[in-house]
Write a protein that binds this DNA or RNA. Structure first.
Lengths: 219, 219
DNA sequence: CCTTCTGTGTTGCATATATCACAAAGATAT
DNA sequence: ATATCTTTGTGATATATGCAACACAGAAGG
């Protein structure tokens, strides 16, 4: 349950009053849970719940682990991040898909079909919520598009540069900070870490980028 | 302008009457246009319009062309397909992004911010439309997720198998048909065509798949 | 009919990338 | 402080992948 102050910051409950918020929680059979770092938030392999999760506070990550145990970061989920079976990955049967807590999190679970169904009460707050949800889904689609943009590049060099340009654009500056470690970055662009390090060194030597730890500058 | 019959099939205007539909078009300053094969539907490089396009009928494709002129299929857009600057690709400055007509198309262009803004009339049809739009965006997110799932695999072999499993699951059968040519498939999984053909041959030889033209069977 | 184009199938060769292995620096916990 | 991690950095080697080139079939179009 969010406090009144937290509610105002919530991307999902924007423009919704505290009273409306409370009645909506009931209406949608919503459940809010808190997690600590490294907690398992959600496991797609257990087919029990078809709920949708929305990150209200903190950070989480969607991880895929394939048959050989290789882990890949599929998505980074900040506040407003949405995840759920219905809107992700058929999940090639063999591998497991999990949402893992990065920093202490509040996550709201909602029965998604309930949102898409027309409310018999035709309640006004419902439609505001749907509108907010649409905003979140647009953001998600955009984030995924950018990911595809990076992954569809044909070499490590191009992948790195593409991702750097995205970060630089987001930061509004030539200098920016990686949201995760270099090891995770290799994972994110779906290549071998050592190969990526080599390419990174080359980029530095050629004067294309400058880097210090996780801080980078495009030249 | 859709006919009454077409309207019922439209994914965006589901549960909306013909009268409501007509008043919505005005309300959203929507414009419907028709295209023929190979027509350029939308170009992201021209920053004039921030509209969102929805494919009502026919098929289109979102194509990226990078500095060196290499084209990559970013998305296949069928009926219900959504595209627009706000919900895709920052587009690494250098390369151009276009939506191209595949089969004769009807496309509806809507001013997107207008949808996300709250309607001062609080009209009921508006909220139904938002709900339908949410459904479309969910579908889009799901499609993009699956694409990421494929692209994040580390070898051509794994990419192919992952994609095949998706198609097989979608078809509900071990046998399925590719939605496009083998050449385009290479493009879709972001690898070299000849390298893909080689891997495909190996898969056939090892008895992992059977294939005849665009028809495949997983064994 | 011939021409032109796109899709398919295959090969030799160069090289980018993965694999494995090791070492040092920082982080975290005991 | 010590031990145990993870992260970063680098190199030698094997291999997967990209590239260029060619041949053939079928479709589309004049």
């Amino acid at each position: 349950m969010l406090s009144q102050q937290e509610l105002e910051k919530s991307p999902l409950f924007q423009d919704i009053s505290y009273e409306e918020y409370r009645s909506l929680l009931t209406c949608f059979q919503a459940v809010q849970k808190s997690f600590r770092s490294d907690d398992l938030i959600y496991d797609f392999s257990s087919p029990k719940n078809d709920a949708v999760g929305i990150v209200e506070r903190g950070c989480a990550a969607l991880i895929r682990i394939d048959e050989e145990g290789v882990a890949t970061v599929m998505e980074e989920l900040g506040p407003g991040g949405v995840f759920g079976r219905t809107l992700a990955f058929a999940g090639s049967s063999g591998d497991s898909l999990q949402v893992v807590c990065r920093t202490p999190c509040d996550v709201l679970f909602i029965d998604y079909p309930h949102i898409l169904k027309r409310c018999e009460h035709a309640c006004n707050r419902h439609s505001v919520l749907v509108q907010n949800m649409l905003r979140l889904m647009s953001d998600k689609a955009q984030a995924l598009s950018q990911r595809v943009d990076v992954l569809s590049r044909r070499s490590i060099r191009e992948k790195l540069l593409c991702y750097f340009r995205q970060l630089s654009e987001r930061a509004g500056s030539n200098t920016f900070t990686l949201p995760f470690s270099l090891s995770t970055l290799a994972d994110y662009i779906a290549t071998d870490r050592s190969a990526m390090m080599r390419e990174l060194k080359r980029l530095r030597e050629e004067g294309v980028v400058r880097s210090d730890g996780r801080q980078f500058t495009l030249l």
